[in-house]
């Protein structure tokens, strides 16, 4: 078989696809299933984002309450009522380390910004 004969053979023996009315129907069915999965994944992402935000807000609130308590209440009162060294050290913490108090707030703010600006994850198969 030479080049010409092969060319003619290939051009004349093109695979023929049978008409299949169910092909598009099947495609529609599969795309609908994909849409369903996409919606479910989106719902899960939203739920996890809400849970993350709630945890973050609760954490910030707890830290804020602690900071307010430490700031308002006198250190001496804590020390005089403290029954052990750990409580004593803990009570003097805000006084000794007050310069570092903005750090957790900054961290919390950064985390919040990260969560809010994070791009929605793509659904992968």
């Amino acid at each position: 078989m030479n080049d010409n004969e092969l060319d003619i053979f290939l051009r004349n023996t093109r695979p023929e696809v049978k008409e299949d009315p169910y092909f598009i129907l099947e495609t529609r069915r599969r795309l609908a299933a994909v849409e369903g999965i996409k919606r479910e994944v989106e719902l899960q992402h939203r739920r996890s984002r809400i849970a993350l935000l709630a945890t973050l807000v609760a954490g910030i609130a707890a830290v804020a309450i602690l900071v307010v308590l430490f700031t308002i209440l006198p250190v001496d009162a804590f020390i005089s009522n403290a029954s052990n060294r750990i409580a004593e050290a803990f009570s003097t913490l805000p006084v000794n380390w007050k310069l570092f108090l903005p750090v957790p707030f900054a961290a919390a703010t950064l985390a919040l910004v990260f969560i809010l600006t994070r791009r929605r994850s793509e659904v992968r198969f």
Binding site: F23, E26, T27, R30, L31, V34, F125
Partner: peptide
């Protein structure tokens, strides 16, 4: 020439393309 396999692959490709 395996039409069944070819159509299965075509459907899979279309789903991947849609995603």
């Amino acid at each position: 020439g395996n039409a069944a396999d070819a159509d299965d692959l075509a459907q899979e490709a279309l789903v991947r393309a849609y995603v």
